[in-house]
Design a protein around this nucleic acid. Structure first.
Lengths: 233, 233
DNA sequence: ATTACTACTCACCGAGTAA
DNA sequence: TTTACTCGGTGAGTAGTAA
């Protein structure tokens, strides 16, 4: 989910921008005195004035000072910021599923099977196409310990994900795989994969990524790993 | 427009609530540590913790503390607050017209005709039905002086308003009237009326209200009056 | 009337730390 | 590990006022 990575301090600017938009400054140039704006915002005239100066500096508004007040219009940039907030809020409020689910598990070494499956060309082709990366040959295995995480994982499986189709080769059948994009430890992108008939039970998470995560994130068996699973809108 | 009459200080709570919703706390109970939340918000762990306490106090979230983090779910009240923000933003972003237009004019005494028209029963009935009040017998006349206000008034006429139908009595014909709800001087509710064939030119605003505004707002000829015209969504 | 500068206050934030 | 207290510094808000 394209979340707002804004500093908390920046939110006062959104508040001001929102108030200006309420007065119509998105579609028209409005005339407003800092005194009037300050009443609408519940702050002092001086603060309203400073907020306008700051928004102007950010180029979120175009401001022209006249003896009877300021002429103000929200710029393209400002409208884009409001739109970002709006569309994120729409996802949050209208989506049937939560935007993301964060799980935590303990790293352990698997049987090495993951590498075999992940490197099958038919899977690889689909990973590249549907996830956008060529997976490192191996999976990161996380053991879910808390009741909360196990429950969250089972809920997760009911949400729509990216479907990887199974196939046959001369000797055997490879099943369908469902996956979700994830962010590992708030840093690295990857995907969690759910083999529909996994040899692991439902308290394990298998992660693939374009790089060798153990070295990239300096992970060792027993370390706790946080996985933010992104649900498709 | 049902604007947010929140104090500017309250917006940090919306920011926190928004971040929690991004993590799925609208539809599920999520487990999150104050440390993790603080990273997502770009503030310190202590600030995140305090924000959660404040949100809990407001009953916008339900919070249960566990040794591994907080279990958090946004309450009905919290969801309602987010929804209010969301639907206001939707109006602002998707409406073809601005939510409101604020005009300023100078009070003057008209010819007294307003009182005659406003007290016609056929008009009165429709005012009560469509505006929700029985107008004081008389109109408040404002002269628009600045170019900005005249331009804004002419734009206003192109926006959809409340239509009051004309009628005939035994002697003459009374034309259609278009009106918009207004807030006068940020305090009193009323409506601006545009007689489609007005004897005034387009630099005058005629206001009606349930009470005698001149005494309610201590207004005298020559005073400046601010009128916030509310456009229908 | 306006806007917005300079002081100054105070509330908020975060470091340290207890539980 | 957690959460959340105290407390001190800082930056946001306001009063006064100039332009």
């Amino acid at each position: 989910m394209s979340s707002f990575n804004v500093d908390a301090r920046e939110w006062k600017h959104f508040f001001t921008l929102y108030k200006l938009a309420e007065m119509g400054a998105r579609s028209r140039t409005i005339k407003v005195s800092t005194e009037y704006l300050s009443e609408k915002m519940g702050v002092s005239q001086q603060t309203a004035s400073r907020n306008l100066i700051e928004l102007d500096k950010k180029a979120w508004i175009k401001r022209t000072i006249t003896p009877e007040g300021c002429l103000i219009k929200i710029t393209e940039t400002g409208v884009a910021e409001l739109k970002k907030l709006y569309s994120n809020l729409r996802l949050i409020m209208e989506a049937a599923y939560p935007p993301s689910v964060t799980l935590e598990g303990v790293l352990f070494t698997g049987l090495g099977e993951g590498a075999y499956y992940v490197t099958r060309d038919e899977y690889r082709k689909q990973f590249m196409e549907k996830l956008g990366f060529d997976p490192y040959p191996g999976t990161l295995n996380l053991k879910l310990t808390s009741e909360y995480d196990k429950k969250a994982r089972s809920e997760l499986e009911t949400y729509p994900g990216i479907e990887i189709e199974g196939f046959k080769d001369e000797s055997r059948t490879f099943g369908n795989v469902k996956c979700y994009p994830v962010v590992i430890n708030n840093k690295m992108k990857g995907a969690v994969i759910f083999a529909l008939r996994s040899h692991y039970n439902s308290s394990v998470l298998e992660i693939i990524a374009p790089t060798y995560l153990r070295s990239q994130l300096k992970l060792k068996d027993g370390h706790k790993v946080k996985v933010e699973v992104l649900i498709l809108p």
